[in-house]
């Protein structure tokens, strides 16, 4: 089982590198922004504009927009993250950790003009690029903070602030930073989540960390919805502090929001049937804590 998994990974890696080399050859780099962390590169290819970190080391698209139809969300996982609306159809205070090109906050801003949205991005270069190349606009309702997500969330907890819709989408070039994967961090997130609020976390569907992440989320939030689709390598975690509704109860909000989300390429009606609360991970895995979080070594 493990060996075949490894074989598959290797095969995928080979394919990926093959594709990657071709893609890089045809891509044009239109901008490079110097960063304190890792340089941010903007490329254009096939009418898609993408933001990348680590171009030289097998690049990974952080975010892409479709230049012909900027409203359409290019990535499956970005669309999947809006499944959080099934659990809270009318968010008023939204927190998004990880800006990227600003796709998620921008769509939320359009969908919920009354909501107050805080975005956390540690890298000023990403903010600059998002504004210049990805139509990210700040206003009095949508504010970006250049800060480490852990620091902002801990401070918000001390101030007693709460959000009813939290999206964790902070990725470095490799994966989620280690200090944003621990039980203590999730407890801090839970502290700033309103009793009926929803937490949406974007993770990878197949990584060495999958089991670790799953048991850690479970330890803080109890059962959560696991959302994976065939067409995406990402897994979205949907968690609440209160008991979860049954997946069938989510059909009503799905129908309600379907029309509003359609322009973005999100088919909300398909989502409820794909949510599962059944653990498909080893429940005896060690929980990640601030004391033990070798996350990126396990990946």
């Amino acid at each position: 089982m493990r060996m075949s998994g490894l074989g598959l990974m290797l095969l995928l890696l080979v394919c990926w590198f093959g594709l990657d080399n071709r893609a890089v050859a045809q891509r044009t780099i239109i901008h490079e922004e110097r960063s304190q962390y890792r340089d941010v590169v903007v490329t254009e290819f096939n009418n898609q504009r993408c933001m990348l970190f680590n171009v030289h080391r097998g690049d990974m698209n952080q975010t892409c927009i479709d230049l012909r139809d900027p409203r359409r969300l290019v990535f499956n996982y970005t669309r999947m993250s809006f499944a959080g609306l099934l659990l809270n159809p009318d968010p008023k205070r939204i927190l998004v950790a990880g800006l990227g090109g600003g796709t998620i906050p921008t769509v939320m801003r359009e969908l919920f003009p009354e909501a107050r949205i805080d975005v956390l991005e540690v890298d000023q270069a990403v903010v600059t690029v998002a504004k210049q190349y990805f139509n990210f606009v700040e206003d009095e309702q949508l504010v970006n903070h250049v800060v480490d997500a852990r620091v902002f969330i801990k401070r918000a907890g001390l101030r007693g602030e709460q959000y009813d819709y939290i999206v964790l989408d902070a990725f470095s070039g490799e994966y989620i930073p280690e200090h944003l994967l621990t039980q203590e961090f999730l407890q801090e997130v839970s502290q700033i989540l309103t009793p009926d609020g929803v937490l949406v976390a974007n993770t990878f569907a197949s990584s060495g960390l999958y089991d670790y992440e799953s048991v850690t989320y479970q330890s803080v939030f109890g059962a959560f919805f696991n959302f994976k689709t065939a067409g995406s390598g990402n897994r979205i975690i949907l968690a609440k502090k209160q008991a979860l509704p049954s997946a069938a109860e989510l059909n009503a909000p799905a129908r309600q929001l379907y029309e509003r989300l359609r322009p973005y390429g999100i088919n909300l009606l398909e989502y409820p049937a794909q949510l599962s609360t059944r653990p498909d991970w080893d429940v005896d895995t060690r929980i990640l804590t601030d004391q033990y979080s070798p996350a990126n070594l396990l990946n």
């Binding site: 480490d148 852990r150 801990k154 200090h179 621990t182």
Partner: peptide, 12 residues
């Protein structure tokens, strides 16, 4: 770095 990350992040 690990000791301080929970309070100050893992920024440069």
């Amino acid at each position: 770095g690990r000791v301080m990350a929970p309070y100050f992040g893992s920024s440069v």
